[in-house]
Simulated assay, not measured.
Amino acid sequence: MTEINAILEYLRNNPKATNPEIADSLKIDVNNVKANIGKLKARGYIEVQGQGITRTITVLKEMPVSKHSYKKEIIETMIGKYMEDFEESGTLNDRIEVGKVILRLLEKL
């Protein structure tokens, strides 16, 4: 997850969060938080109301999901399932066949 996506997710759950709070929770620089909030606001992803401790941020829309990250998530899930099959395989030949599938999936990551 990118910094900007992490900030958007944090704001969805914590609309009254301050920049230092976001920075501490996500372990990123407070200046990056400020810059990313500015980008999110400029791009129409969030709306900022008020200032300082009375500031409330409303998430207006979600960031688009990239095909690459979605594909990677699916492949990682598949690998997990095939690893279970690999561990439960009764014969050496079954393990070899499942292992080949796992290796092909790993190459796609």
Rank of each mutant, 00 (worst) to 15 (best):
M78W: 09
S25R: 02
N31Q: 09
G90E: 06
G90F: 11
D29F: 05
K81F: 03
K71G: 12
P64K: 04
K41G: 13
I28G: 05
T54N: 04
K67W: 04
K41V: 11
Q51G: 07
T91Q: 01
L40K: 07
K67H: 10
I46P: 09
T91E: 01
H68V: 02
A42L: 13
E21Y: 01
D85N: 12
A42C: 07
I28T: 12
R55A: 01
N36Q: 15
I46G: 08
T56F: 02
G52T: 14
N31V: 04
D85M: 07
K81I: 04
G44M: 10
E47I: 01
N32Q: 10
I28F: 08
K39V: 10
Y45N: 13
I79P: 02
K27D: 15
E88H: 07
Q51D: 09
R43L: 06
D29R: 09
T91G: 08
I53F: 15
F86G: 11
A23F: 14
G50T: 14
M63K: 01
G50L: 03
E62Y: 02
K61I: 01
T56V: 02
D24E: 11
N32I: 13
A35S: 14
I79R: 07
N36W: 02
T56R: 13
K39H: 14
E62R: 12
E62H: 14
Y82S: 07
K41I: 07
L60Y: 04
F86P: 01
I28D: 10
A42N: 09
N31C: 11
G80I: 00
A42P: 07
Q49F: 05
E21R: 00
L40I: 11
K71S: 14
S89P: 07
Y82L: 13
T56Y: 12
I46H: 03
T56G: 06
V33W: 04
V65H: 08
G80C: 14
H68D: 09
E47R: 04
V59F: 02
T58A: 10
Y45F: 08
E73G: 09
V48L: 06
Y45I: 00
G90Y: 11
E21C: 00
I57W: 04
Q51M: 13
A42V: 14
I75G: 09
K39W: 15
V48P: 06
I22R: 06
K67I: 12
D29V: 08
I75L: 12
V48H: 10
M83R: 05
D29G: 05
S69C: 01
A35Y: 15
A35C: 12
T77D: 05
K61H: 01
K81C: 08
R43W: 03
I57D: 03
K71R: 14
G80S: 12
K39F: 13
D24C: 00
V30N: 06
Q49L: 11
P64Y: 00
E73T: 08
K27E: 05
L60R: 13
S69T: 03
K41N: 13
I53S: 13
E76D: 05
E84T: 06
R43S: 10
R43H: 05
T58V: 03
N36Y: 09
K61F: 05
K81T: 14
T77S: 07
S89E: 01
T54V: 10
T54E: 15
I22Q: 01
Y45H: 07
Q49W: 06
G90W: 12
R43Y: 10
N31A: 05
G80N: 04
T77M: 15
M63N: 03
K67V: 10
L40P: 04
T91K: 01
